[in-house]
Design a protein around this nucleic acid. Structure first.
Length: 809
RNA sequence: GGGCCGGUGGUCUAGUUGGUUAUGACGUUGCCCUUACAAGGCGAAGAUCGCCAGUUCAAAUCUGGCUCGGCCCACCA
């Protein structure tokens, strides 16, 4: 045993311990282990700094990883980063001050890769700094060649299964980013607008007034709609109306999707203003009129407005309508519109050619798959089910961008046939590579697919990507399905669901047996942290002032699935715990300096009491961890450690440890045995949550006897049935209660706890008297009472028991 | 508008198969330098458990309605 510093210097300790873990490969995964536990963790997006939510949810999964490791599993815990696609491209454009649209595609892609490489190590360091016990030799990026290969193979397999098709369809389009975007990338934004009533001219010369916020879509108008039950308009069904300014004729139609209460009850349908327009377009087989270009300008059909930006055109058209007397009224409104979350641009719906994965026919299978997964917490499954039940569109996986994983596809210039790459070519870039074979029409003149897959097409393959890192031909057999997916609740519908989809297609199995869903870290007012609100706190800032253990301790407070607000005071609580742990251990080290653990008979009731309580705590912590309830485990541990062990046991045992001669022979040995055993259990029980202080204490004191290189690969404490002793537990509890009463008495008398008292008087039943007899000496010595006697003239309450007390100073 | 989750001392939070005095922390406050810890210890004050109704001998806990907050979805002419 080496010299014990008075204070725990956490900065120094954490660096030293990180080095040790690294050097000794404590978290190295062994595929040949008989017991394997595998974790599919979310690859964080490199386009932002590590934020509190990351620290929060990754700490929580690390609690589980560390617990399982101590339960004897070799833990497969790889770490990925998501550096694929649009977020990275945006970051690079901003950092390097370039525009991908103004660069050679190959140059931009190269710049993206080199930027990722510049940033990657520092980014990952953030996770190392909070003590994540991933096997860092198993790292992947969602854009690396390994991921590209798997992603492209997934595409080819699905294509061959007939699950993928490319089709022209109305889809969400961002005019700024000039790409199709996923529904999940939409955000609601409250914007000012005007709700304009304008007049279409009916065949009989009368006006038909419609209300719209988007008069610039008039050239794209293809019909007018009214509700079938709307008496005002029903008779107009089938008549034609002339579109103001633009002059083409459209028909008045009836459809139940019209809200008669809204505006004038008559609405124009444009291709495309919103989702309903798409539905009408399909249901009524309407013509297509495109008024907006891919870069957000007016098209030729807009006549003199051609080439104008959408908003500019809207303004001028309203002015023109007003001049012409067509604008009947206009009122200012605020309404929410869909914008692209990354650039805040109002989205458009354009008919473009995209790749889709066909899956709407399999809703039932997906819901059944969800039932085979154990959800923690259970209620999160409902979100998954609801999402599937509400699905209406196939999954669009293409984007019109330059940076991303290309589709392994060429189109035959002669016959138009789709030619997919041969598996042996992967990863492939159709822009620079050629197909292995001629087209079946005999031509070898090809046009490459210029799109890239969106990030979700790849990130839904993390189980396959992660397992692919293992150099073992049976890796898939050994690791799939994985044991656990961890993620936050906001992307159940997207990431979790679509991973199940891919897994069902490719492996015909669920991707993992369990899923653990975490909440968010919110700011101190319970609001989501976001850059625009300026309320973001980064873990790196916290770690300058507090140990990683304190941050993790905070993360362990939250019940699984619940959001938690971040307040610095809660991190302080974590620091206080670390300090307490250190000090209590220091006390033990002083008394156990020459102690060698060996099994002895425990003689003292108070020792039996704490050992029995410890057994109880181990049971609670183990059961809680098995249900992924780390916060329950932590709470049980904390109560035991702080209240039972520190506040009571150590205080009671102190006298026996310093003055063993006052006690029967063997008392000191009994205390030594107990103290060692209990402290070791404590260090282990909290090791998953506060790995650094636990490791430090283990290294200084326990390693010598326990042999394992690290506390994190020692065995989780076992329940020893022979330590359960309910009678001693009750005696000990009563002793603590009596000691508490004396402390309170001394406190009210404003005297030091050291102040001796002459006599403790106790009145209680004979049954309780027998229990108290076994601990009376400990009570007396702990509170420095000269005598203790059973008498009937007492009136002070003894908390929780039918006992009355009296004290004579 | 729909789904799921939550509302507990000033602040954060445990407890929800109904049953003595509702857990812990931060903050406030009194005392105490006590051979681990003043970054501490021992006490104290502070909660009609979001609101209303119901079931029950008994409700923080169960039921219904309302309200506020979070996430997801829909709407957004």
């Amino acid at each position: 045993m080496r010299e014990i510093p008075n204070k725990y210097e956490w900065q120094d300790a954490e660096n030293r311990i990180n080095d040790k873990w690294n050097k000794k490969e404590i978290y190295k995964f062994d595929i040949n282990s008989k017991k394997i536990y595998s974790i599919d963790s979310p690859p964080p997006t490199m386009s932002g700094n590590m934020h509190m939510g990351h620290a929060f949810s990754f700490s929580q999964m690390d609690f589980i990883a560390r617990y399982k490791r101590m339960r004897g599993f070799s833990v497969f815990f790889p770490f990925g980063t998501d550096d694929n696609g649009l977020p990275t491209a945006k970051l690079v454009e901003k950092m390097k001050n370039v525009k991908s649209s103004k660069m050679e595609r190959g140059d931009f892609v190269k710049l993206c890769h080199s930027t990722i490489n510049e940033l990657r190590d520092a980014f990952i360091q953030g996770w190392k700094n909070i003590g994540i016990s991933a096997d860092w030799s198993l790292s992947y990026s969602t854009i690396d060649l390994h991921s590209q290969k798997i992603s492209q193979k997934s595409f080819i397999d699905l294509y061959k299964m007939g699950r993928e098709y490319r089709m022209e369809a109305p889809y969400i389009w961002c005019p700024t980013c000039q790409t199709a975007i996923a529904q999940i990338e939409l955000q609601d934004k409250e914007l000012d607008s005007s709700f304009n009533d304008l007049a279409f001219t009916l065949k009989d010369g009368k006006d038909a007034i419609i209300s719209t916020t988007r008069p610039e879509l008039l050239p794209a108008c293809v019909a007018l709609f009214a509700h079938p039950d709307d008496k005002r308009y029903k008779k107009l069904e089938g008549t034609t109306a002339k579109v103001p300014i633009f002059g083409h004729d459209v028909t008045v139609l009836l459809d139940e999707r019209v809200d008669p209460e809204k505006g004038t009850g008559l609405v124009m349908c444009c291709t495309f203003g919103d989702q309903t327009d798409i539905e009408w377009f399909k249901a009524h087989k309407l013509p297509l009129r495109v008024a907006i270009t891919k870069d957000g300008k007016m098209t030729k059909i807009a006549g003199k407005y051609e080439g104008m930006q959408i908003k500019e055109a809207r303004k001028i058209i309203i002015e023109d309508l007003e001049k012409a007397g067509i604008l009947k009224s206009s009122k200012k409104i605020t309404h929410s519109v869909n914008v692209h979350e990354r650039c805040d641009t109002e989205i458009e719906i354009l008919k473009t050619s995209q790749w889709f994965i066909k899956y709407l026919d399999l809703k039932k299978e997906f819901i059944d798959a969800g039932k085979k997964i154990n959800w923690y917490p259970e209620y999160m499954r409902t979100r998954y089910d609801n999402w599937i039940n509400g699905l209406q569109w196939d999954w669009c996986i293409s984007m019109q961008r330059s940076f991303g994983i290309p589709f392994p596809v060429w189109y035959c210039k002669k016959c138009g046939e789709i030619n997919v790459a041969d598996e042996s070519q992967l990863p492939v870039d159709p822009l620079t590579d050629k197909p292995k074979n001629k087209c079946k029409c005999g031509s070898s003149d090809f046009e490459p697919d210029r799109d890239v897959m969106n990030t979700w097409a790849t990130s839904t393959l993390t189980p396959q990507i992660a397992i692919g890192l293992i150099d073992d031909k049976d890796a898939m057999k050994k690791l799939f399905p994985m044991d656990l997916r961890t993620q936050a609740h906001d992307i159940i519908t997207l990431w979790l669901f679509n991973t199940v989809v891919k897994s069902m297609f490719h492996e015909n199995n669920i991707p993992w047996k369990n899923t653990m869903i975490s909440g968010f870290a919110l700011d101190s007012h319970g609001k989501k942290m976001s850059k625009s609100k300026g309320n973001v706190i980064e873990p790196s800032t916290v770690l300058q002032k507090y140990p990683a253990d304190a941050l993790r301790f905070w993360a362990s407070e939250s019940k699984l699935g619940d959001d938690m607000s971040y307040q610095e005071k809660d991190i302080k609580t974590g620091l206080k715990f670390v300090t307490k742990m250190w000090n209590a251990s220091k006390f033990a080290f002083i008394h156990l300096e020459d102690y060698k653990p060996k099994k002895i008979k425990v003689t003292n009731t108070i020792d039996k009491w704490i050992l029995s309580k410890m057994t109880d705590t181990i049971k609670t912590c183990t059961e809680a961890f098995d249900e992924y309830q780390y916060s329950k485990s932590k709470r049980a541990f904390e109560n035991f450690f702080w209240q039972d062990l520190c506040d009571n046991y150590l205080e009671i045992a102190k006298d026996r440890l310093y003055n063993p001669d006052k006690y029967p022979k063997g008392s000191k040995e009994s205390a030594h045995y107990t103290l060692y055993k209990v402290l070791l259990a404590c260090v282990k029980l909290i090791a998953p949550i506060t790995p650094y202080i636990s490791e430090e204490i283990y290294q200084i004191f326990f390693k010598e006897n326990e042999k394992s290189e690290s506390v994190h690969i020692t065995a989780w404490p076992e329940i020893e049935k022979d330590l359960i002793d309910k009678t001693s537990e009750k005696s000990g509890d009563i002793a603590c209660s009596i000691i508490g009463a004396v402390r309170k008495y001394k406190s009210i008398q404003n005297v030091s706890m050291n102040q001796p008292i002459k006599k403790i008087r106790i009145s209680c039943s004979d049954e309780l008297k027998d229990l108290i007899d076994t601990v009376s000496e400990d009570i007396q010595n702990t509170v420095k009472a000269e005598t203790l006697e059973f008498k009937d003239d007492c009136d002070i309450e003894c908390n929780g028991y039918d006992i009355k007390l009296g004290f004579d100073m």
